[in-house]
Amino acid sequence: MSGGIWIARDYLKCSGCRRCEIACSLHHEGKIWPESSRIRIFMLIPGLEVIHLCTQCPDYPCVNSCPTSALSIDEKTGAVVVDKGKCSGCGVCIKRCPGEIPHIHPEGGYVVICDLCGGDPQCVKACREGGWNALWIAEREFFKNTFKLYARKPEEMTRDLAFNLYGDLIEVEV
């Protein structure tokens, strides 16, 4: 995987079980801790599960905007790596992310971003073990800009999914 890996996602297959979050927080924190999870499932409207995690944009706006150089790129996987010591928790990277995906660790005060678990993402394992297959590993190859599309705000993705599943049957309020 010369171009690194990407976690592909299928929103309509996501059951909302959040076992990906359990796997993520156990791996990174050794605890079950939903708000520390690097992958977060938003459910602004019931039934419309929004998988929210880093897409590794080819231009890395988060890395490039970090005022304390706390963010770097893992050469092997292409993942964004956070240097907790350097991060001031200023939130500039969050604002520069097209999906506002990074968030601040609820206890540590530093930003958390998916690090692809060094190339073996635990969320994907949990999802595939469950047979949901809402997450899987794809090669980055030449789709980098296309993958970046998946970095969108949960409100926008919720509206898209509502259009798909509920059509004009509900008035979306998110």
Partner: peptide
């Protein structure tokens, strides 16, 4: 359905207002 959507949105708004530096708040 309306109750759940409205309160969910309102609470997310309050979370962002009270703790604005944490990134996006979930429902």
């Amino acid at each position: 359905k309306k109750t759940a959507m409205k309160i969910s949105r309102e609470v997310r708004g309050e979370l962002s207002r009270l703790w604005p530096t944490m990134g996006l708040w979930r429902e």
